[in-house]
Structures are given as structure tokens and as C-alpha cells.
């Protein structure tokens, strides 16, 4: 598929209604275009992994997604775990049920908050950077140059980024759950008189494989959404430096919304 697209209309809209219709059509076409980017990127995964340069790009993206984000992700998930433990713990204490603190925190993290923390961190750290980088390339004609040289921007730029996000997001989500649980344990033992050992055994007794897998699946879906949206925003950038700013902002907003919506929907499908 070609990335450098022209506006759908050569002339200015003649009336308000026409302008509105065009906006709608434009929106639908952008949706379709984004879906095509996702599908063609997935189709390009094998050719990324076959080529030496492709594997190098993929490894570089894994590093960017997985390692460079660790400081932020660690702090975010630590605090989410601590907040959860404090809120839940105070309520549980009213009923003398603090022994279940570990279970409550762990479940929430595995099923929901771990993937969520991972998702928003990746959208903010990685997604925005992808949109800005590809957007700058677009307005500098670099994407056009690649297309003319018959180097598919999908294979060369989109696929390694998307694949790295899909692979790394579940791993990071699991890491978030672990760190969050530890954070909860610290709050439990220092603020709520729950022994750390008791907390951990409560947490481990409740965790089921299903919770783990649904959480990981959720994170994988988030990774895919972030990759697709950010790449599409970057590739769709127009109008110079302001356009790059707009695409970056837009990619973060859309990613946050989608993470919330898909988070809810996946939970709804697996727990009812």
C-alpha cells in the first residue's frame, strides 16, 4: 500500500453540508487506511525477521519499547500498587479483613491495572515518539523518498515498531503487576499492619492462570493499538512542524481512549 496520499478532493467544498459530508468520508477513509496499515504491517512481519537489517531494526525497537521505558513504568506501577493497597486496605480494615489485601491488589493488577499502567506508559513514552518521528519524516519527504526507492515504509518503519510493541507490552504488563504487587505489600506492611509474608501468600493463593492470560492478552491488544494508531498518525502527518505537533498530540489522545475502551470490552468478554 502507498503511504503518501493526496487529499481526496482537489476543490474547496461548496457548502457547509458538503464540507460536513467530506469530513465524515475523510474520517471513514482514515479508519480504513489505519486498518490497512495494521494488516499490511502484520503481513510484513516475516520479511522483517528474514532480513538482517530488519532484525537489527526490530532489536533496536525492542530496546526502545522494553528497556528505555522501564524507569517510567516502574514508578507508575509502583504507585498504582501503593494507591490500590491503601484504598482497599483502609476499607478491608473496617471489616477486619486485612488478610485479603494481597489477593485484592494482585487480582486488580493482573486483570486490569497492570496492563492499563503499561498501556498508558507506552502510549505516552513510545507512541508519541513514534508519531513524532514518522511525522517528521513525512513532512521532510523522507517517507516519499523511501516509497520512490521501492522501500516499503510499512515493512521498513511500521512493522518493526508494531511487532516490538506487541511482543513487549505483555512482558511489561506482567512486570507492572509484579512491581505493583510489591508496592502494595510495602504499603500493607508499613501502613496497614499486614505482614509482608501474609500479604504475598494471600496474593499468590488467589491468582489464577486465567487472570494472568487475560491480562497479558489485554496488554498485547494495547500494544497493537498503540503501534497502529501512532504509526498511522505519523504517516498521516501534513502541514509541516505544526502537523507533527498535532499528530503527536492526537496519537496520545486516541491511544488513551482506545486503551480505556478496549480494556473495558476485553474484561466484559472474559468476566461476566
Amino acid at each position: 500500500m502507498t503511504i503518501v496520499r493526496e487529499p481526496m478532493w482537489d476543490d474547496a467544498p461548496r457548502s457547509r453540508t458538503q464540507a460536513l459530508c467530506r469530513h465524515l468520508l475523510q474520517f471513514l477513509s482514515t479508519l480504513g487506511w489505519t486498518a490497512r496499515i495494521l494488516v499490511s504491517s502484520i503481513a510484513a512481519f516475516p520479511s522483517v525477521l528474514i532480513r538482517r537489517s530488519g532484525r537489527a531494526d526490530f532489536a533496536a525497537q525492542l530496546y526502545i519499547v522494553g528497556i528505555r521505558t522501564l524507569p517510567v513504568i516502574t514508578v507508575v506501577s509502583l504507585f498504582i500498587g501503593m494507591i490500590l493497597a491503601l484504598q482497599v486496605g483502609l476499607e478491608l480494615r473496617r471489616f477486619n479483613q486485612e488478610i485479603y489485601l494481597g489477593a485484592a491488589v494482585m487480582l486488580t493488577l493482573l486483570r486490569e491495572m497492570g496492563p492499563f499502567a503499561c498501556g498508558i506508559s507506552l502510549a505516552a513514552c513510545v507512541g508519541s515518539a513514534i508519531a513524532a518521528e514518522l511525522g517528521t519524516m513525512k513532512v521532510n519527504d523522507e517517507i516519499a523518498a523511501l516509497e520512490i526507492m521501492s522501500i516499503s515504509p510499512i515493512r521498513y518503519l511500521a512493522a518493526p515498531r508494531l511487532l516490538a510493541l506487541i511482543v513487549m507490552a505483555p512482558i511489561l504488563a506482567f512486570y507492572c503487576s509484579v512491581i505493583g504487587t510489591l508496592g502494595g505489600g510495602i504499603v500493607g506492611s508499613t501502613q496497614l499492619n499486614v505482614f509482608f509474608q501474609q500479604y504475598i501468600s494471600s496474593a499468590l493463593s488467589i491468582a489464577e492462570t486465567k487472570d494472568l492470560f487475560v491480562g497479558l492478552l489485554k496488554a498485547g491488544v494495547f500494544g497493537m493499538l498503540i503501534g497502529t494508531v501512532s504509526v498511522a498518525e505519523g504517516f498521516g502527518t501534513k502541514l509541516g512542524a505544526t502537523g507533527v505537533g498535532r499528530s503527536t498530540q492526537q496519537s496520545v489522545i486516541v491511544n488513551f481512549l482506545l486503551i480505556l475502551m478496549f480494556g473495558y470490552m476485553i474484561t466484559r468478554v472474559f468476566y461476566r
Binding site: 537489517s53 519524516m137 521532510n140 519527504d141 523522507e142 516519499a144 523518498a145 516509497e147 520512490i148 526507492m149 521501492s150 522501500i151 521498513y156
Partner: peptide, 30 residues
């Protein structure tokens, strides 16, 4: 497109590659 070389007004080099790697790119990839 394979038959056409194109010099863009702004150069359009890829920022994360050296000059030599940029020049080698069309040969390496295609």
C-alpha cells in the same frame, strides 16, 4: 520508480543513518 532517481528539495536523508549508509540504502534494500 525503480528507473527513476529523485533528489528532493530538502535532501530527505534518514536521520539515524550516516551519509554513506543513506547513499547505500537503495542498493542494499532493492
Amino acid at each position: 520508480r525503480d528507473r527513476i532517481g529523485y533528489l528532493f528539495q530538502g535532501g530527505a536523508l534518514l536521520a539515524w543513518m550516516t551519509v554513506a549508509e543513506n547513499v547505500a540504502l537503495p542498493l542494499e534494500e532493492c
